[in-house]
Design a protein around this nucleic acid. Sequence first.
DNA 1: TAATCTTTGCAATCGAGTTGCACCATATGG
DNA 2: CCATATGGTGCAACTCGATTGCAAAGATTA
Lengths: 136, 136
Amino acid sequence: MQIVDEILKIKKVKNTAVRTVVLRHLLSQEKAQSLKDIENALVYTDRSSIFRTLKTFENNKIIHSIEDGSGMIKYAVCVKGCNCDPKDLHYHFYCNNCDKTFCLFDVPFQNIELPENFKIQQANMVVKGLCNNCNK
Amino acid sequence: MQIVDEILKIKKVKNTAVRTVVLRHLLSQEKAQSLKDIENALVYTDRSSIFRTLKTFENNKIIHSIEDGSGMIKYAVCVKGCNCDPKDLHYHFYCNNCDKTFCLFDVPFQNIELPENFKIQQANMVVKGLCNNCNK
DNA sequence: TAATCTTTGCAATCGAGTTGCACCATATGG
DNA sequence: CCATATGGTGCAACTCGATTGCAAAGATTA
């Protein structure tokens, strides 16, 4: 998995066993993952280690977190070149039926006209409904 | 406070002591309130009663909940005529500095072009940054 | 190699949310 | 007007995701 090494190198985060498996797992998933999801997938890795790894990744903008209303924070790998600035924002979609959370990278993020003197720094945009798989 | 009675009547929710004080409190606040906020304000009212009251209000579309990433669900009174449908959606603003969450009723909600076969049912849109009071 | 810093695993803790249960208030029917 | 049913309330306990303290293991540097 060279991609894992490459990402960590670019973001200047030291490579470790836990970091490798966590990032590899995140990259392999189409939907955003909760701490529990990762814990279940990586049976031999401790929860707190995964937790701290996620915090490290988030601080170094390797991943971003999503609050989709499921009660669990979800994590997804940032796209290449993302700095988690307002310009890098995208919508998320939470499926009420299958419980999956997707990053909608292809849906353009519209500029929001905030009231006078309000300044945007980040955003958490979650559209909820039925995904293409469940809307049948 | 006739407005409280009026809202409860319109939404067909029976008036009780707890419901009156909770709704009155929510109406008196400019920012969305967490369970803890309300608990702190209404010292003599039990937490679980407030909790169940909020659930009742939410089910009857008197209030809506907001997940602003603070770790606590916030509640705000719906505007008149709101049915919590996608058409009634609005943005929320969370201030990273003062921790307040506002409903941005005046910011138009833009239509989002979802991918093929995705169906919107609700949304939780939170813009984070600095509010007009903190952005100085 | 010794000293230092970082990462990891385990166990414990925190806190928001939620629930069970008994009691109380209201209203409904005889 | 009382008896019963229905729903609301307060208290205490519990759930579960998130987080932290601490000591051991591993990596890095002098």
